[in-house]
Design a protein around this nucleic acid. Structure first.
Lengths: 377, 377
DNA sequence: TTCATTTAGTTCACGATGTAGACTAAATAC
DNA sequence: GTATTTAGTCTACATCGTGAACTAAATGAA
């Protein structure tokens, strides 16, 4: 724990003000005082600093109300600070630039087959993409304060422990860029993306289906750290098929991308979607089986962490209409007796861009949570 | 979020000082300044307030070191403030009084068969026990600042949703006592008990075996709120026996108290322990099977939350020597491929008193985290 | 039109709190 | 005995939120 000095006090009150504006849109100083519990004087000085720093702008619009002097609304200003989100996946690289208001200022997706490509080569391509996006952002007058790279698989201390999609194992990520760069798990970042920009709620579980199946847990509007997130290796049946992890009957062996494609007799997710739409039999029952297995694993997960919403992303997004009913039926069967209600299943609202948006959003939220370093003094 | 004023700043720094002393035993003001990062002057005034309030005492012992004026060590003083922990279980009621130092000042256990007894009757007995303990504490010169009651089963907003041991459903808990009373889940409080006084680590999962099987998760030395904690209803086999929750193949149907006793052909946990010691066959294989099922459920749990220690409490405590090897073997089989290491299994260090200690400890920790209201001004 | 009323925002004296460094206290070492 | 070293206190000062007085800018009623 850190000692609290005057500057920490101020930092926290700045965060409070920015938080209210970020949540509730444009607000007058008077409304901010009301919402935060701070006095009008304090709010005035805080808003003053934030205006000077370019974090806020006075939306010229004055409120026309009943009686009394109209207030001047201030809102987040996207003109100065921005963040870079990056993603490396099997068949594409993606980047996006978000400004302080959460507006997507740039969004790029480069198709690129990364199968069997050495990690360094992929990372160099990521670096180049990032570098060009930084230049573009500079062109727009934006100062990018940080970049976060999403990779599908467990990450610890800047090292990708494994990324089954990409075939990586123990790959340290150090990109030579003029801004601080960090790496994180795609499911965690996807969860944040859905929380801030998509189908998230205050508490939910985000599930990302790829070759592996990851999960990111949001509790009380914050990402739960220390989550293993290995939903793919939750038990579905003790007598199930062997998994590449060495165990048997893991969810991944039923609902992993490869298991579904094999069972459906197709070779790509697009082909699977197409086959489902035309109503072929093998694909339908393959995805239904995957949905049932997913339901079993989710029921276990929900017994442990108690969320009332589950957002399905990754390849589960496009398959949602066929996958979700089966999963939901299993959830209902296993959970109604115990908790009355069953968590709602939602498809990802952001699709492939959930992780990239979450990655950029994380930096934005860090800046909003501690604007101190960026204030002029 | 709350606005931060000067008093909040001070409150947090007081917490910081108390935290260091609570963690590291007696410390001089100079050492505190070093540890907290506050200046010597600030530490002096903070320690001064805490001495005045009776939270700290100058342990007359001065440090004899090398050169220089010896420091005066201050340590937590148990003389003034205390907390009451309560537990209602099937065949006993328990209470304990803890002082600020975490010392058990009183500990009572009343054998009492609560099977089939109406909830109000049991709660009235709890109230009487609590009331007499409050009187005893007053006798010791202690001011009890709060009481917490542990009940085995899910609790929400002061209502026990279900307590399979006691046969309760939707029982609101309102004890007429001169101190604030709250109720909480036995597994959560047991986890806190083990964290503060027993076998806990910074991150671990506490598992409480009773008729139901609950779990409390500690991450970063804090109880993870929003945990469903229903480890007993995590899936072990999709083709397993039906569970009272309406699902099939739940852990409880393999490793719940009733399942184990039935399979072992005995009627009490004590009898089971005795039979295990004498090496009877049916009990040994019954507990081994329970251990294997527990291992499967724990593997799923660890995939989701990633702890490196699991503490087994409740009836699992006395059964540990026979239960744990089977569970550990399963954990190893399912987890080594993925994470290299396997979480360590430990028996509860506190046995039946984990929950009561955790209940009292929670109030103590609340006071230590915000001593403000108790300071003389 | 004019003035009372109402609401927004600013200003300023004040109090609470932490800081930095000077100062006092109490030990050891030479 | 005196220098050195470390602990703890004291004091001037800066930071920051508060609260009340004050200014600003609107509406509504006379």
């Amino acid at each position: 724990m850190e000692p609290v000095r005057h500057d920490a006090m101020r930092a926290r009150n700045l965060e409070l003000v920015l938080g209210e504006i970020g949540r509730g849109g444009p607000l007058t100083r008077a409304a901010l005082a009301e919402l935060t519990g701070l006095t009008k004087s304090t709010v005035s000085t805080l808003v003053g600093s934030l205006l000077d720093a370019g974090f806020l702008a006075e939306t010229a619009a004055v409120r026309a109300g009943e009686r009394g002097r109209p207030g001047v609304e201030v809102s987040l200003s996207g003109g100065r600070i921005a963040a870079l989100g990056l993603e490396a996946n099997v068949d594409y690289l993606a980047a996006c630039v978000l400004d302080l208001t959460g507006t997507v200022r740039r969004s790029v997706r480069v198709e690129r087959d990364n199968r069997g490509v050495p990690a360094e080569t992929v990372l160099e391509a990521v670096r180049e993409l990032a570098s060009s996006e930084l230049a573009e952002a500079r062109e727009l007058g934006l100062t990018v304060t940080g970049a976060v790279l999403a990779v599908s698989g467990p990450v610890r201390d800047g090292v990708v422990l494994s990324a089954p999609n990409l075939g990586w194992r123990n790959v340290p990520v150090e990109l030579d860029l003029p801004v601080p760069v960090s790496v994180d798990n795609e499911a965690s970042l996807g969860a944040l993306g859905e929380l801030w920009f998509g189908a998230g709620a205050a508490d939910f579980l985000y599930v990302s289906g790829e070759i592996g199946i990851g999960a990111g847990l949001v509790v009380d509007s914050r990402l739960f750290r220390g989550t293993g997130g290995e939903l793919g290796h939750v038990l579905v049946s003790p007598s199930g098929p062997p998994c590449r992890c060495g165990a048997v009957g893991c969810l991944e062996t039923y609902a992993g991308q490869e298991a579904m494609l094999t069972a459906a007799g197709v070779s790509t997710v697009d082909a699977l979607s197409a086959a489902l739409s035309t109503g072929d039999d093998a694909p339908l029952s393959a995805v239904k089986a995957a949905g049932e297995a997913l339901g079993l694993a989710l029921a276990s997960a929900v017994n442990l962490v108690d969320v009332d919403r589950v957002v399905l992303g990754g390849v589960f997004g496009p398959l949602f209409p066929w996958l979700a009913p089966a999963a939901e039926a299993v959830l209902r069967a296993r959970l109604t007796g115990l908790r009355g209600s069953v968590p709602v299943l939602n498809p990802s609202a952001l699709g492939d861009s959930a992780a990239t948006l979450g990655a950029a959003g994380r930096t934005i939220h860090q800046v909003l949570a501690d604007p101190g370093p960026f204030l002029v003094r």
